[in-house]
Amino acid sequence: MLKGFKDFLLKGNVLDLAVAVVVGAAFTAIVTAFTENIINPLIASLGGADEMGFGFQITDSPETFVNIGAVISAGINFVIIAAVVYFILIVPYNHAKERFLTTEEAKATDIELLTEIRDLLADRPLARE
């Protein structure tokens, strides 16, 4: 029973769920607040005296403003969230996986497993219909 639970934890199902919850809820709100209140004003200051920020306007209508600063902020959001997820979840997961896997599981490669499957299938008689 505990072996099954260990396998469940180390196969990545829990990690996938944790990544989705963390990225979707907590870090997105924090990083968005950071970029909107700190990064966006810094990027908008690059736009000079333009009150709309860093970008350009295609026509006289304000709806045609191409906001380059928002795209840069979204990229910064993504990098920060990806870094947090990597260092908080993925690195510890990989460390735990290396520590708790048996030596046989760690040494088995895809090629070895496929070779074993091929040999087992070769030993079976062909079923004729």
Score class of each variant (00 low, 15 high):
A96F: 15
A26V: 08
N40D: 08
A25I: 02
F87A: 00
K3Y: 01
V19P: 01
L15C: 06
L10G: 07
L42F: 11
P125E: 05
V85P: 00
F27C: 06
F56D: 07
V14A: 08
A106D: 13
F78L: 10
E105F: 10
D110M: 11
A25G: 08
G69R: 12
D16P: 00
I88P: 00
N37H: 15
I68F: 15
E63K: 13
G24D: 06
A96C: 12
A106P: 00
A82M: 04
I81E: 13
D7H: 08
A108D: 09
I58R: 13
E116R: 13
T115D: 15
K97M: 12
I72T: 14
T102K: 04
A96K: 02
N37K: 15
I90C: 03
L9S: 08
V23H: 05
A74G: 12
E104T: 12
F78E: 03
I68Y: 13
G55N: 07
A49R: 06
V31M: 04
G4Y: 12
V23C: 02
T64H: 10
V31F: 11
F87D: 04
L9V: 12
N67M: 03
K3G: 07
I30T: 14
A70V: 09
G4W: 07
I38K: 08
L126V: 11
E129G: 03
V91D: 05
V19A: 07
I81L: 03
I72M: 15
A106E: 14
R118M: 07
V84F: 13
L2C: 00
E51Q: 07
L101S: 15
V71N: 14
A18R: 01
I111W: 00
N67Q: 10
T109D: 09
K6Y: 03
F65Y: 15
F65L: 07
P125H: 01
M52L: 07
R128M: 02
I58T: 13
D7A: 12
G24W: 05
Y86L: 05
P62R: 02
L120N: 06
N67T: 02
R128T: 11
V85M: 07
K3R: 09
A122Y: 04
K6T: 04
P62I: 10
E105R: 09
A96S: 11
F65P: 11
G55Y: 10
T35D: 10
M52K: 13
L17H: 01
M1Q: 11
E51I: 06
D119V: 05
V84R: 00
A25T: 13
E51S: 10
G24F: 06
L89T: 03
G69F: 09
F5G: 01
A49F: 01
L15P: 08
E36P: 04
G53T: 01
F8V: 02
D60T: 14
V19F: 05
D119A: 14
G47P: 04
F100C: 05
D16Y: 07
R118F: 10
T28P: 03
V19R: 07
N67L: 02
I72N: 09
L10F: 10
G48V: 04
L121Y: 06
D16T: 07
K97P: 01
R128H: 01
K11H: 12
A70C: 08
I43F: 09
T28N: 15
T59E: 10
A25R: 05
T64L: 09
G24H: 00
V23G: 08
E63Q: 15
T115N: 11
F56P: 09
L46M: 13
I88T: 14
V23Q: 12
T28S: 15
F56R: 03
I72S: 07
